[in-house]
Design a protein around this nucleic acid. Structure first.
Length: 580
DNA sequence: GCCGTTTTCGGCCCGACTGTTTTCAGTCG
């Protein structure tokens, strides 16, 4: 049983305890353990067998036992016996907005309702409103929630959420009463998928009402789901929930920090505040009441920005992209936060197509576009011959393209086009060009574009074989596990990363903005193994060039140091790397 | 259930909003 499955079961145990009405801290301990487990990169079996699993802070006796049982036998008696109390459909019921453990457990006990369908039936028949603690409104909300769940059961890709937020955010931000405004939440943290959009605004009390009105009246709003004095919630036409929170300007950094999250990160920051003798909420630091345990409260510093808040609790400023409680607190406390990559660090990209294959722009246009972005180089990697759907290049056309690139390069002073290819990895692991042809390129990106339906073992074998070809520089768009439901493919990522480490190859992780869901654990694992990686970003946004669609570059900050990213290197360094 | 250079017991982050209630529980983030 793998890490993800075990983590899922720990989460389930936590939820089952909630349903049973157990001590909330108890259930949280299991959810916590689930999260911790999904974040580790070590081999879970090794951790269990060595007993080191107990060394992870937050994994105690009970959680360790469940993990060990699952690793060693594939089953956990504790989990099994808990499950007996509740049918599986219960978990789906918990996904409905407004349905928490108390209501779900109550309905199950009182009405024997154990599925979303059963709940819908009961609500439609008006059976719920008569129940204690329920009413007409609750019943209506449950039906709405079910509808919502079916329509938008998944999260939204960041590019969808970003687009959906733009217009309404602009209106709120440019309101005359608005002092400061920021998008918060997972969108600010640049997660690959977004649950809802959070907007935080500061304003004088007299302006709050008008700002709220501009928000709920916005044309992109489909439905208003909540409207209070400081907070309003709407569903946008795109189906994404959007919350607006308006606070006093002095409270703004606290609110921004709070609503940016993540929840786990916030919990840690609040603990640190308590260590200083304060409590922290979304408005301010407040001194703990006298007589409470803990050190004597220190004087509370004035905080005008988020950086001031971090400084107050003894941390250096933590970038939103890092706020997941995956080591950033410790790093910030000891001054060891990574020097993050930003858009400005990109010197060029390597996975770019032109109108030779399925791109839209000519070589010359691409070169001009890259220079406009201040880049030093651009790697051209059009498709190989077998990619008929993408107008892949024959050997003759490769020669023609090289000639054209050479001519263009002669005309540049501080810029260079690299001659690359994105060669197809055939089903048997061979490459679509002969070694002789491959040797004529500056670099080679090898990618899988066909026959996705292989077994994990066969796909892994296929890719490993291609990776071993001495001409291959970069393994193209290795997909994350999360893509599987769409057009990703199964493969043993660990094995491939290990091989890349041995062979000194670069891995391009992830693919395309429209099917983007980066697995950062994989990224961290690759970095831990010393594999040079290139993150394939949503480069539509980065470049403004229609054709740098597949830019191998870092388009967002992440838990990566600049030194880890190929694209931050200068042309000279790149040249020497490619010639190795 | 987990944790601990103050603790092996007693804490564990905190508030807004909703819908049901006449003071609060449940849910959410």
């Amino acid at each position: 049983m793998d890490k993800a499955q075990i983590s899922g079961i720990l989460d389930e145990v936590g939820t089952l305890l909630e349903l049973k009405g157990e001590n909330p801290f108890k259930s949280r301990a299991f959810h916590n353990a689930a999260r911790l487990l999904s974040g580790i990169t070590e081999d879970i079996t090794v951790l269990v067998e060595s007993g080191d699993i107990r060394k992870i802070k937050g994994i105690g006796e009970s959680t360790a036992k469940i993990i060990s049982d699952l690793v060693l036998t594939g089953k956990s008696p504790d989990h099994e016996s808990l499950k007996k109390g509740f049918p599986p459909g219960i978990f789906d019921m918990m996904k409905i907005q407004g349905m928490g453990p108390k209501k779900v457990a109550f309905l199950y006990k009182k009405m024997k309702i154990s599925s979303v369908d059963g709940l819908e039936k009961a609500a439609k028949a008006g059976k719920l409103e008569k129940l204690e603690g329920f009413g007409k409104k609750t019943e209506e909300n449950i039906l709405l929630g079910i509808e919502q769940l079916r329509k938008y059961s998944s999260k939204f890709h960041i590019n969808v959420a970003e687009q959906a937020s733009q217009a309404i955010f602009e209106v709120v931000k440019s309101h005359t009463g608005t002092i400061r405004a920021e998008i918060a939440g997972s969108l600010r943290r640049r997660k690959e998928t977004i649950g809802d959009i959070d907007i935080v605004v500061s304003a004088k009390p007299k302006d709050v009402k008008a700002i709220m009105k501009s928000f709920v009246d916005h044309p992109s709003v489909e439905r208003v789901t909540g409207e209070g004095e400081t907070k309003s919630s709407v569903v946008l036409q795109s189906g994404i929930n959007c919350d607006l929170r308006v606070v006093d300007d002095a409270e703004f950094p606290f609110a921004l920090n709070y609503f940016t999250g993540s929840k786990e990160h916030n919990v840690r920051i609040r603990s640190l505040a308590r260590d200083h003798g304060w409590t922290l909420n979304e408005y301010a630091f407040t001194a703990l009441e006298a007589g409470r345990k803990g050190p004597k409260a220190k004087k509370i510093p004035v905080c005008r920005t988020e950086a001031d808040i971090y400084k107050a609790v003894g941390l250096s400023y933590v970038e939103p992209e890092l706020r997941e409680d995956t080591g950033e607190i410790e790093a910030a406390a000891s001054g060891k936060l990574p020097n993050l990559v930003t858009y400005n660090d990109i010197r060029g990209t390597f996975h770019c197509h032109t109108n030779y294959s399925d791109g839209h722009n000519t070589l010359a246009e691409m070169a001009v576009g890259a220079q406009k972005l201040g880049w030093e180089y651009l790697g051209i990697a059009d498709h190989s011959k077998i990619a008929a759907y993408a107008n892949g290049l024959s050997e003759e056309r490769v020669k023609k393209q090289h000639k054209e690139i050479d001519t263009l390069n002669d005309s540049f002073n501080d810029f260079r086009l690299f001659e690359g290819t994105e060669v197809d990895i055939l089903t048997n692991g061979d490459l679509d060009f002969s070694d002789k042809v491959l040797s004529t390129f500056d670099y080679v990106v090898a990618s899988v574009h066909s026959n996705f339906k292989l077994s994990e073992a066969d796909m892994t074998k296929r890719i490993l074989k291609a990776l071993k070809n001495k001409h291959v520089t970069i393994l193209g768009h290795l997909t994350g596990r999360l893509l599987l439901e769409r057009d990703g493919y199964p493969l043993n990522q660990t094995e491939i990363i290990n091989a890349a480490a041995d062979l000194g190859k670069i891995i391009e992780i992830n693919a395309h903005p429209m099917r983007l869901d980066l697995d950062w654990r994989m990224v961290r694992y690759a970095i831990s193994k010393g594999v040079m990686i290139a993150i394939n970003p949503d480069s539509h946004v980065v470049s403004g060039l229609t054709d740098v669609r597949y830019g191998v570059g870092i388009a967002r900050k992440g838990w990566c140091e600049k030194k880890d990213i190929l694209n931050t290197r200068t042309t000279k360094q790149i040249e020497s790397y490619l010639k190795r």
